[in-house]
Amino acid sequence: MSTGGKKGDAPPRKQQPQKQQSSAGPSQGPSRTVRILVSVLLLLHVSALYLYPLANSRTSFTVRNIVQSPWLRWYGDPLYLNHGHGFFGPDPPDGFLVDYVVYDDQGKEVSKGTFPDPKEIWPRLRYHRFKMLADQLESPGRGMKEDRLRAYARQLIREHDGENAVVTERLHTIVPYEDWIGDEASGRKGKPLDDPSLYQTLTRVTQSRADVDAADAALESGAESVPAPIGPPEQIGPGGPLQ
C-alpha cells in the first residue's frame, strides 16, 4: 500500500541532473505562484488543525492566546475545527442518565422514562444523540447544567403535552473491576454492572407549562435570558440513593 499518490501514481522521482530543471515541482498542475499561495494557506490550515486540540486547560498561555485570538477563531470556528479529539480520554467516562416524569394539570402521570434508553430510542445513532444530551450536562459552563436540565424539562412538557415535569440527572458509576470480579478466596461475590449502589442522583429540576410559555415568549421577543426558575435546583449530595 502507498499514500494517496506518492508511489503509485505520482510521476517517478526525477534524477539528479533533472533536479535543478524541475525545482518548481512537477510541470503539470498549478503555476509556481499558485503553489506558493496555496502552500501558505495549507500551512495556516494545518497549523489550525494542530493548535486547536493543543489548547486544553493544561497548555501554555501562549497556545491559549493564539487559539483564542480572533484571527484564528475567525477561521477555525466557522469551519468546525475548534475542538479537541479526546476520544475516551483522559479516562473512559462514567455514564449519565436523565430520568423524567411528566404530569398533567390534575397531577396525574402522563409519561415517565429515562434517556438514553436503548430499548426505546433507535436507531443507535439516535440513541447516541440522547446519550450526549445526558453526558454533556456535565460539560463546562458556569451554572449551565441546571439551565440545560430545565430546557429538557420544558421540551418534555411540550412533547407529552403535560403541565409539569420533574427531571433528574443521575450518575451511573462504572463498576470497579475488583468489585465486578469479586474474590473467591474471601467469598466476596462480584457486583453486576447495574448494581443499585452504582447509581447516584445528582440534580433535580421542575418546570411547568408557565415556564414553557415564558421561554417561548422570550425567544420570540429575542430576549437572551433564560426564564427564571421557580426555585433553585435540588442538589443531591453524594451517596444519594437510586430512585
Binding site: 483522559p90 455514564g95 465486578w180
Partner: peptide
C-alpha cells in the same frame, strides 16, 4: 491528540481503561 489526551488519564496507564470502556452499560 486522542493518544495524548489518554496520557493525561490514569486508567490508560494502569490498563483499566478497557474495562471501563466495555463495562459502561450506556
Amino acid at each position: 491528540f486522542a493518544g495524548l489526551g489518554k496520557l493525561e488519564g490514569q486508567t490508560w496507564w494502569d490498563g483499566y481503561a478497557i474495562w471501563r470502556s466495555i463495562a459502561s452499560s450506556e
